[in-house]
Amino acid sequence: MIEIQHLTKRFGALTAVDDVSFDVARGEVLGFLGPNGAGKSTTMKMVTGFLDPTSGTAKVCGHDVVSDPIGAQRKIGYLPEGAPLYGDMTPRGLLKFVAEARGIPASQRAAAIDRAVSRVHIEEVLNRRIDTLSKGYKRRVGLAQAIVHDPEVLILDEPTDGLDPNQKHDVRELIREMSRDKVIVLSTHILEEVAAVCSRAIIIARGKLRFDGTPADLQAMDPAHGAVSLTIGQAPGTTEALGESLSAIDGVARVEPLDAANGVASFRLYPAEGANVFGPLSALAHERGWEVDHLAVEDGRLDEVFRTVTAGDARS
C-alpha cells in the first residue's frame, strides 16, 4: 500500500534522504530506525505530502504523493514529529476540525471522535486548552487526530516519545490492535519497541537504507547471536585456565572472557558454524561441579546491531 522508489531529498548540499526504496504491505507494522538526523522524519514528510521529493516517487494506496497529494492524504493518518497542535483549541475542538477536514460526514463525526478519544484515553482533558496539557497528553491528542478517520495507512513519527510506561504499553497495544487491516509506519528510538510491535524494521543512516528485515533478522546480525554466555560463581582456578578448558569443548570456535570480579568468571562462547555448544557445555559444567550462576543462549542485542549498522553515522 506504500510504494517508495528511489526517494531522495536534498536540502542544499545536504542529502537528507538518499535513494531509498521499499514497499509496505497491508498488515505490516514497519519500525523506522536510525540515529538522529538520519532522515526518518524527512522520509515521512515526503510520504505524507508535506515535502516534495527532490527525486524518486512515493505512492500511497496507488496515489502518487506529488501528482495526487490529496488522494494520498485522504488515506493517511499522520502524527508529525513533536505532535504539533493548535494550542488555543481544546482537544474536542481540534478533533472536530480534523474530522471535518477529513471529510467524515456530519452524522458520523461524533461517533468517530468518541472512538478515537476512548482509544487514547483523553476523556478527562477534552475541554481543556491544549496549551495547558502535559506533554504526554498532547502526544495522545496527536494520536487521536491521526486515527479519527480510521485511516488505511498510519504514519507515526515517534508516537511513544514522552509517554509514561503505562501509556507506552497502551499505545503499543493500540498499534497491534489496529495493525491487522492497516499499514503502520512508526519511527522510534526505543529498540525494544521494534521487537515488541513491529513485524519489520528498517534502519536508515545518513539518508541511506542500511537494513530491511524482521526484528529477529536484526537481532541475528549481532555476532553474539546464538553464542552461549556462562557465568560461574566461586570460579575454580584462574580465568585463563577456565578459558582453556572451555575452548577445548567440541564445536566452540572462540571463547571471549567477559568481565570477572569477586571470584565470579564470565565467558561468551561462540559456536562454530552450525555447531551446538550448549549441551556439551552444560555437561562439562556438571562434570566439573561448577557453580553456574547463569547459562543461556543469547538472542543478540538490538542496540549492538544498531550501533554496528549505523557506526560512525551520527549527524546533527
Partner: peptide
C-alpha cells in the same frame, strides 16, 4: 505540518 497533511 498538521494543516498541510490534511486532505486540504
Amino acid at each position: 505540518e498538521l494543516l498541510m497533511t490534511l486532505p486540504i
